[in-house]
Structure formats: C-alpha cells, structure tokens
C-alpha cells in the first residue's frame, strides 16, 4: 500500500446493531486506507458489513438500535466521528457522497429528476454553482439530455436512474465517493456503460472511491486496492495485483474458486462448504474457521493477528505457510 498521505483512514472501526435483545456484531475492528484519486474495492458477501462501513463513514447509520462502538474515521486529518452533526452535514454531499445500491428506491418518485440533482447543489454547495445550471450540466455529463430535466424517475429506465443517482453523488465534485454496489441492479451491457462513466469522471476530478461490491470481475476492472471482508473483519488486504495473483486467505481463495470459470470447462464448481457465521454469535477466533480446510485449534483460540505475505500484503490467517504450500 502506498505510504504517501492517506486521504481517508478508517481505524479499528466497531459497529453493532441491536436486534431482538441480541447484539449483532456487524463490523469488528476494521482498518482501511485510501489515497486521493485511488479506488479501494471492498469485497464480501451479503451481511459481511460492507454497507455498514460506508454508512459509518458518512454517519448515516440509523439512530435507533445501532451504535458505533469504537474507532476513528479520518478524512484529510479530521476525525469525522468526533465532529458535530452540523459540521458533518457540511461534509456530506460536498466532500463525501454516496451512490446507493438500488436506483429504483434511491430516487424520490414524486420529484423531477433535475430538481433532485439541483437540491443537492443548493444544500451543499454554498452558492458556488447555480443549482439549475449545474443540474443540467450533470445530466449531460452522465449522458442524459438536459431536456429531460423536468421528467420523473418512472419515465427513466434502470440504467438511466442509476446515472441520475451518480449525477447527484458527483454534483458537488466530492473528494470521496462511496459507491455501494453501483451496478448490481443493472444488466451487463448497461453496467459496462456505468463503470466506464464512473471511471472517466473519477479521472477527471481525481476523486477517491470506496467501491463496495461482491463481483470480483468489477473489482478487477475498476480498483487499485482490494480489501476482502468476512463477517465484519478484513481478512485480506492488498493491491489488486497482490490479491488477484496471490490470494492467500482461505476465504479469498474459496471466493475465487466458486466463480464458474469463463475459459475452462469444469464438471463441478468448488463451493465453500457451510454458511457464514451468525453475527449475534461469532466464533471467538477466526470467523472463517468453521468453514476452513486449514483450521486447527489455534484458529479458535482468540482474535487472529494480521500477517504479511511473501509479496507484502496483509492476511489475517495464522496458517499462511500451509495455505501457500497448498495441497488442500
């Protein structure tokens, strides 16, 4: 990882939800770093805590039943978890913005799409831009004719709605973009268009991006660095090349193995046996141990340390040497 000044730094973040009197351990001590203009992919399965991390950075977790138990979120040296709500409101939309997963529900159905973009500019941009003009400009940037300013979301297709959501997120030139599965609800040909668009805009404005996804193919195309998350813990973290060329954590290896191969014929796929652990009752040691072929008593003793692999990336597994040898 680059050691130059980190723009975003998440340190030891712990988030819990309360549900039915039980505590859901959603995020358990996560560390992330992101430089200006870089893209970090946060990869993991449903319920791994990906969206919770993004929402913690933006401080938009629900007030009731949810608590950031510990940790720090530094943006440009300022700890976002310590500042007042008023200050935070100035940062949202202006410095950090988020692309939500489902374009069908992220837009207001009874408000004109153009006005939805203009609203963000009016609220967050201190008169720097004329809201109406900026909204029209943003529509054009994401490939929608400005004449459609007065239309409503139901008049748009899924791909176009997602482009409106992107236009809203980018309207104030944020320094940090949190993209939560921005293309999951879209078809592949439209996904290709949207990914291309995000890439262009990012290069133009030098925006840093945290891309949340479960699709390894999307990560391969867009990201510079990758963090693999499992049950609220980062299990492997490195550059895209390190993770894709030398995946070392048994979970990452399993994740790659479970994807049907596009170039080779194989009779059977290689699923990861078992299921993710119950987040209200996490194992004491490695959360992946119950599903892991390499697991020993050592894995269950207590929290797993992060080790460096041969190529220098982080891997939270006490059996790296065995895994590298392979054979299982």
């Amino acid at each position: 990882m680059s050691n130059n000044q980190e723009f975003l730094e998440v340190k030891n973040l712990v988030v819990e939800y309360k549900s039915d009197g039980q505590i859901v351990h959603a995020v358990n001590g996560v560390n992330l770093k992101l430089g200006k203009g870089r893209t970090l992919g946060l990869v993991g399965e449903t319920g791994a805590g990906k969206t919770t991390i993004a929402k913690s950075i933006l401080r938009i977790l629900p007030d009731v039943g949810c608590k950031i138990r510990g940790g720090e979120v530094h943006l440009d040296g300022k700890d976002l978890l310590k500042i007042s709500e008023n200050e935070m409101r100035k940062i949202r939309g202006n410095n950090i913005s988020m692309i939500f997963q489902d374009p069908m529900t992220a837009l207001n159905p009874v408000m004109r799409v153009g006005d939805q973009i203009a609203e963000v500019v009016r609220l967050h941009n201190d008169g720097h831009y004329d809201p109406r003009k900026r909204a029209e400009e943003m529509l054009e940037i994401v490939g929608i004719p400005a004449e459609r300013y007065m239309e409503y979301p139901h008049q748009f297709s899924g791909g176009m709605k997602q482009r409106v959501v992107i236009a809203i997120a980018l309207a104030c030139n944020p320094d940090l973009l949190l993209a939560d599965e921005p293309t999951t609800a879209l078809d592949v040909t439209i996904q290709a268009q949207v990914l291309d668009l995000i890439k262009d805009l990012r290069e133009k404005y030098n925006t840093a991006m945290l891309l949340i996804t479960h699709d390894m193919g999307v990560v391969a195309q867009v990201c510079d660095e990758v963090a693999v998350i499992y049950a609220g813990t980062i299990v492997e973290y490195g550059t895209k090349e390190q993770i894709f060329d030398h995946p070392t954590h048994p979970y990452t290896i399993g994740l790659f193995g479970a994807i049907p191969d596009m170039n080779e014929d194989e009779e059977w796929l290689h699923p990861i046996d078992g299921l993710p652990p119950d987040p209200t009752n996490l194992p004491k040691g490695c959360p992946f141990a119950p599903r892991c072929k390499y697991a020993t008593a050592e894995c269950e003793k207590g929290p797993i340390q992060t080790y460096k692999t041969a190529d220098g990336h982080d891997c939270a597994c006490c059996h790296i040497a065995d895994v590298v040898k392979g054979g299982k």
Binding site: T189, Q191, G217, A220, E241, F244, F256, I259
Partner: peptide
C-alpha cells in the same frame, strides 16, 4: 457486445 461487457476476473 454481451460477452465483451462481462467484467473478467483476469486482471
């Protein structure tokens, strides 16, 4: 077009 739009895991 459909095939070329699939994001490949081969970096």
């Amino acid at each position: 077009a459909l095939l070329s739009a699939i994001p490949s895991v081969d970096i």
